[in-house]
Design a protein around this nucleic acid. Sequence first.
DNA 1: GTTGACCTTCTTGTCACTGGAAGGATTAAG
DNA 2: CTTAATCCTTCCAGTGACAAGAAGGTCAAC
Lengths: 134, 134
Amino acid sequence: MKINDAAKRSNINSKTIRYYEEVGLLPPTNRNANGYREYGDTDIERLIFIRRCRELQIPIKELMILVNVQTDQQSSCLEVDDIILKQLEKVRDRIKELQQLEKTLNKLAHSCQFDTVSQCQILQKLTEKQMLIP
Amino acid sequence: MKINDAAKRSNINSKTIRYYEEVGLLPPTNRNANGYREYGDTDIERLIFIRRCRELQIPIKELMILVNVQTDQQSSCLEVDDIILKQLEKVRDRIKELQQLEKTLNKLAHSCQFDTVSQCQILQKLTEKQMLIP
DNA sequence: GTTGACCTTCTTGTCACTGGAAGGATTAAG
DNA sequence: CTTAATCCTTCCAGTGACAAGAAGGTCAAC
């Protein structure tokens, strides 16, 4: 199957598939007589696996480890667990950050009752020290 | 005052200050006889304002509007409010996304009781369709 | 006079793609 | 059989918001 079909089946953009190959997340793909990339069912499975991990926002470099670990059935599972936990921690930290941000923005929003910028309470508050994120 | 002092006073990296100037967030800075950039108190105030907005993760392009609106005291405050609300919405959406992500990662984490990859439950689950983010 | 701390510009790298141009191959329709 | 549309290929540029580093100029202190 050619790259566009692989893209549809894996639900990854063909450009992205080429990019994954270029950066080494995928091994060099088999080519047919015309030099077109040829994909089989195993390739599609791998692509889907990769898509799921990317949906979990696992960075490509970590994903490389997962893909390599996957092919070496003897390697330890701890590495896999570690990557997931690291990702979990990153996500939790980011949530906290964003919640703080939401609070601040919420305080700012609609805080201006005037018409022109000269009296704007939002700009006012943004110029005060209190608005600093702690 | 030269760029390093301005950086310290505004708490923005000097590299970043030059970058802001380059992309047009800041007007071309005054230079002294040697071609060194010269900053005054007004510049510092503007830099601090910019830093606060960036801490609220307002994108530079939106920030340009805020900075321009600020200098034109007659312009409407609605634009300012709009930017803040847009940012608030973005932040809220992102929080929701990340919370979903956290759930999924949490389910995955520590779900493997085996030693080697061949029996790894995490990789197993990542290969199943159920793990798809809805 | 030389050391070290500044300053300047320019280039490159980050991350994960996305878009487009230029050129060749295949396929379907007329 | 020709033509048009749709593939495929590679390469290059852009995104956002900087950070890092190189090469070279300037300045103050000792």
